[in-house]
Amino acid sequence: MESPVIYIDIEKTIITPSGKMNLVFKSEIASGELLALFGASGEGKTTLLRMLAGLTKPDKGIIKYGEKVWFDSFKGIHVASQNRNIGFMFQDYALFPNMTIEGNIRYAQTTKDEEMVDQLLELFGLTGFRKQKPDKLSGGQKQRVALARALARTPDILLLDEPFSSLDYKMRLSIQTEIKKAYQFKQTTMIIVSHDPAEILRLTERIICIENGAIVRTGTPKEVFADYEIITFNS
């Protein structure tokens, strides 16, 4: 079954290192889309993901998932994160230190499904570490666990906040392959925050560029990165 369209039309004042900035975002995201949010640090990309996840409230506007209203400032509606069926991969992975790797994945499930736990562990090459605690894993392994855990809930939308931020080149390529696997696993709608054109070109189908808190360009990665100014701005 296809996921419905996500409709976002919000405003939020955010604090950046250079002062207050008004984040204005209006867009639609199609079902099963693999979308990148691109822009420099402090442009509000993470805030946007957090608003979609229900972790941060917009100042005003509407967020809809198909017919379901997740946020409506005019009607005072704010659906909690727990009721949005999203998967969120945090920059710091946010793995639960008290649980084993399989425990982290199992915790994410709504109904117990051991077969799926085994499947996810195998898909991300974690079977050998299933009984380990997160602090025994490398950065790349932790990232894979975070991805597997986010998928274990079978989310409608997967939100990935700079999933490659602290990895070396080789590990980046490996995790990008894992994300492709994750995408193919359920054809879940995915939104990735990134400021690396190379990984966006490799991974995503559509890109939204944010600058000074507003959308400045949208299109396929090739169309957008043909724009010289954006390439230089990023480098």
Binding site: L55, S81, N83, F88, F96
Partner: peptide, 15 residues
Amino acid sequence: LPDSLSEASYTLGKS
């Protein structure tokens, strides 16, 4: 504890 721990749990549907 980092806020992301409780937030991760909420995004996983936990009360």
